[in-house]
Computed example of a mutant assay.
Amino acid sequence: MSFRLGLTGSIGMGKSTTAQLFAEAGCAVWDADAAVHRIYGKGGIGVEPMRALEPRAVIDDTVSRPSLRALIAEDPTLLERIEKIVHPLVGQDRQAFIDTAQADILVFDIPLLFETGGNARMDAVVCVSIPAELQQKRVMERGTMTLEQFEQIKAKQMPNDDKVARSDYVVITDTMDHARAQVQAIVNTIKAGLSNA
């Protein structure tokens, strides 16, 4: 039986990098965003159901995220109908990962882990964190969104302090070396617990 470790954190906190560090430490990593990309991509299991729901969302046999965002802005009720299609498909993708993963620690990289109640399916949760000023600076340096868009995304996420308080482990991603050392310590702690079980 593998140990299920949820990995979460707000935008710009360094979650993707931390997920990579867990992979380097020998953990199997499942990425919720990557699962959605597979589902929406060419030949993905979500393309035809989405075409049936909203044909304008499908371009070149892939579900276009920019088109979806525009359509949801037009009709906010669309989001709930999209989620009814996508959430079960993401669940299937996650289960396929669980069924085939070989590692003793499975890491589930899920941005909205607490918001969606996914933490209930985990044995423990890691939250990545940095001070708010550094978070904003990182996101703005990417050059992919405006400050207003960043604030909108943040508003939809549980406050960082709440996530940290509800997590079993916290990784401060101020430097790569610091983050790597914390990840290794978490992996060592979990493996020690597994060998004593």
Rank of each mutant, 00 (worst) to 15 (best):
G143D: 02
T146R: 12
Q182F: 01
R166D: 04
D162A: 12
M158K: 04
L134N: 02
I98N: 15
T175W: 03
A52K: 15
I39D: 03
R4F: 06
T77N: 02
V86R: 08
F108W: 13
I11K: 00
T116D: 14
N196H: 11
P76S: 11
L53D: 11
I72G: 08
Y169A: 02
C127F: 06
K137A: 12
G193F: 09
V170A: 04
A179R: 07
R121E: 14
A179I: 01
E74Q: 14
L53N: 07
R38Q: 04
Q20Y: 02
V86F: 13
T8H: 11
G44T: 14
M50L: 12
V171L: 02
Q95P: 15
T173S: 00
A96N: 13
I72M: 07
Q184N: 07
A25T: 00
D61K: 05
R138M: 01
D60F: 04
F22I: 00
A120V: 12
S16E: 00
D60I: 02
K191Q: 11
G117C: 04
N188V: 14
N196M: 15
F150K: 11
T146W: 01
F114D: 09
E74Y: 15
R180E: 05
D31V: 12
K156H: 12
T100E: 13
E48L: 06
A101Q: 05
A70D: 15
P66Q: 03
D174T: 10
D104C: 09
L68Y: 12
L5Q: 03
P55K: 08
R166I: 03
V128S: 06
A57E: 14
I98M: 15
R138C: 01
T144R: 04
I82E: 06
E115K: 04
T116P: 04
Q136F: 13
A70V: 04
R4C: 08
R138H: 02
E54M: 09
Y40K: 05
S2I: 14
L78D: 08
V125F: 05
R121S: 11
F3P: 13
I45H: 05
K156Q: 14
L79H: 14
C127Y: 05
F97G: 08
G14W: 00
A25L: 03
K84M: 15
N196T: 15
K191P: 00
M145Y: 06
T18N: 08
D161L: 06
D99K: 11
A25H: 05
R56H: 10
L78P: 12
G46W: 07
E54R: 08
Q152L: 10
A181N: 12
